[in-house]
Design a protein around this nucleic acid. Structure first.
Lengths: 299, 299
DNA sequence: GATGCTTACGATACCCGTAAAGATA
DNA sequence: TATCTTTACGGGTATCGTAAGCATC
């Protein structure tokens, strides 16, 4: 038994039991992969994989139990290396963060610039993706930290703690009729075409919930991944926008106006997530501290 | 990094940093050991060991942290193998138990004979040793189970749960003056020379505590590792004996008599201990069940 | 001087990748 | 037929053990 074999076992699961892909992912030949698996199964004296002829379909019962342990072993070996890095390069290394556009664009910049002052020699890697991919990246160990508003809770393998809470706000072009109202309600808002986030992004579910609870069916004419896009189309007059309040900057967005609608939508919790059992570099902890110390209060 | 290197790291600790012994323990050459350690340190880029010239003295700070993780990794690989065995030989394998004489002689026989009926193909290994050695054997993974009355608690690495409780009893030759008393007290007992267990064995501390609490200094003329020896000398008239009550068998020990002294000595708890994080064969669990289901009630 | 660690070096076993063959969809 | 896995085989590398050289006690 050796580490390469264990890496291969782990990768088979990640690559859905396609040994060719496994080989590519591990930068080796698929014949080697095949042989390694065979050797391991021989050594253990049992089949780890369900095979149909020559194809691998999945893990056997013992295979599943083994895979869990293999994960742990490889996690710990990664921890060994992390620890070594920690003792070596005191303040150099890499910090990989996976987050959504909203965080990357509107809340992280201040935190990151502050972090850079503290650790100028740490190379930052920012992955921008949807909540589900963030979970994947965390699980596979490709990123140290995940920050998102959705999908992070209820993941067994992750440690999640809340960073800050915020509300959705309605943005409209200047001089829009809605600006005349003191406190617009949902019905009034729904009378205009709406542009907001995609499903599963930036609290979109909270927006839907607010309307459906009052039996209102909003006319969502367009959905986008990020507030910048939404704002552009609101400027064009395509409709009114519903975006995260922190994505509105009165100085920049002079052609738009934000309405006070904190009372209309449920609050959203943006959380930070880490993989359990993963040893963190000192500066990673520091980064998390920076995040929690400086909560960007929602408007 | 490979497993052999990690095994060597673990073994250096166990063998007190004597690489020659490490090599012997792992059935390899000491030159290989030396090189492996060097390679590993090179790969990690730091010193794991404190050296004085060519001799190794101990672990460095990072070395200590690493060693903990290394332990876990090797533990998990052992678990992989155990799991494989479990799925393979359904009811064959080995069960290694470390225990004291008292347990081995007086409480385990019935349990073990019952266990043999259930798993006739499991090879039993009984290590008989003192409490401290039992802890060592558990830690190193050489035994699956440890059973003892002392020293098992407060071991971080072990899971301990109580099996049964018992008391010490005084044994005397037939027709001994003490047999005339209804309920002898400690003072009366202490007026005779006493033979009992060695320090650290079979609840000897409880015996001492009972006397010292009443300010009595007993005349312990002899101490032995096991009740059989003690009984022999009591028969010879060398003194009266204080032994674990379950070590007295009225049918066998016809020349002796046991006095009711449950009220005089604190109760002793005999516990069973396992190493944390170690995967157990199904039959090991079954054995533990047998132990707890059939508590040998103290007299 | 005895014990213990390191380095050098040759034999072996292991691992990897190319290529061909066989299986599956 | 195209994709995927296994098997066979050769080249390269890593590992192991013997032996010699040194440091430590």
């Amino acid at each position: 038994m050796n580490f390469q074999q264990l890496r291969i076992v782990r990768e088979t699961v990640r690559q859905n039991f396609n040994l060719t892909n496994v080989a590519n992912a591990l930068f080796t030949s698929q014949s080697g992969v095949s042989k390694h698996l065979k050797d391991l199964e021989d050594e253990l004296g049992l089949d780890l994989y369900v095979r149909k002829g020559k194809r691998l379909l999945g893990l056997t019962e013992p295979g599943k139990e083994m895979a869990v342990i293999v994960e742990r072993i490889l996690q710990e070996t990664a921890n060994l290396k992390t620890l070594a890095d920690e003792y070596n390069g005191q303040d150099t290394g890499e910090l990989a963060i996976a987050t959504t556009h909203t965080q990357a664009r509107y809340t992280l910049p201040t935190i990151i610039s502050e972090f850079r002052k503290l650790y100028p020699r740490v190379h930052l890697k920012l992955y921008q993706s949807g909540p589900d991919e963030i979970v994947q990246l965390l699980r596979s160990g490709k990123v140290d930290i995940g920050i998102a508003t959705e999908a992070l809770d209820q993941e067994q393998e992750l440690t999640v703690f809340p960073l800050y809470s915020w509300h959705h706000s309605v943005i409209v072009p200047r001089e829009h009729p809605l600006t005349l109202l003191e406190k617009p309600d949902l019905k009034q808002i729904a009378s205009y075409p709406i542009i907001t986030y995609h499903e599963g992004f930036t609290g979109r579910s909270k927006v839907e919930k607010a309307f459906s609870q009052q039996g209102i069916e909003p006319d969502i004419v367009m959905s986008a991944l990020d507030a910048d896009v939404i704002k552009s189309y609101v400027e064009l007059g395509l409709g009114i926008g519903i975006i995260a309040s922190m994505a509105f900057d009165p100085n920049r967005d002079k052609t738009l106006q934000m309405l006070d609608t904190a009372h209309l939508f449920d609050e959203n919790i943006t959380s930070i997530a880490l993989k359990k059992g993963r040893v963190l570099r000192e500066y990673v902890n520091r980064f998390i501290q920076l995040c929690s110390v400086k909560p960007v209060g929602g408007l």
